[in-house]
Design a protein around this nucleic acid. Sequence first.
DNA 1: CGGCATCCGCATCGATACTG
DNA 2: CAGTATCGATGCGGATGCCG
Lengths: 126, 126
Amino acid sequence: MTKIRHSRLTCNPGCSVEATISLIDGKWKCVILFHLLDGTLRFNEIRRQVPDVTQRMLTNQLREMEADGLIVRKVYPQVPPKVEYSLSPLGRSMEPVLLALKLWGDTNINLFAQPNSSDAIALQVP
Amino acid sequence: MTKIRHSRLTCNPGCSVEATISLIDGKWKCVILFHLLDGTLRFNEIRRQVPDVTQRMLTNQLREMEADGLIVRKVYPQVPPKVEYSLSPLGRSMEPVLLALKLWGDTNINLFAQPNSSDAIALQVP
DNA sequence: CGGCATCCGCATCGATACTG
DNA sequence: CAGTATCGATGCGGATGCCG
């Protein structure tokens, strides 16, 4: 998604599907959400978990999901700064969706992976 | 996709999630897939079901999903042309994912819809 | 540490016109 | 009917630098 951002929710069936997608599209959101399923993370912790995301994009995605009510951003007024991100109840309610996505990916990813799929299937949990 | 397009499947957990998302992101794909759950559709039938999609975008999204193996494009060599789109077995296997997305949307969409949610919840099936 | 501000290239997408 | 082709504007997203 990349970019619907609550455009117009008055579309036809698939509307709610589209609305849901709009919340988790954006290249990194679902990955971030997935990591947050395991618990609260700090900014740079997320960066380490998602190596290919730039700082700017990570900030953007986090802010959007915060605005969408999916995650909670807690700032500790101290030096050096400390900011923790965690799932809101709404974000936590996305767990079935994320798991459905992961399940599908796990069972079908080998159809796309060209490497000699011996270890390509091994999905490590951090 | 918005744009991952099978970039690199060697990322961390959420990898398969990301890969799955990359197949159905792109503003219209999930909506199209959702409509195709009900059966085969012709090009302009899809256009009518998804009013806001431009011809160009519809073609692009359909071509990408065809390349991803999610849908089947059947051309009837006749005049005027007739092209039918339907779900491949792989696309059909996305049904649980799509339903999970719709279920979440149906139960949470009212949190975002600002209209006096009396009829906003009514989801019509074409 | 966890940002924000700026510059800027480049992909995306809409609009329009044309075709088999 | 179901596209392809081309143009042009929008804005995403990377790189860099600065800040509290």
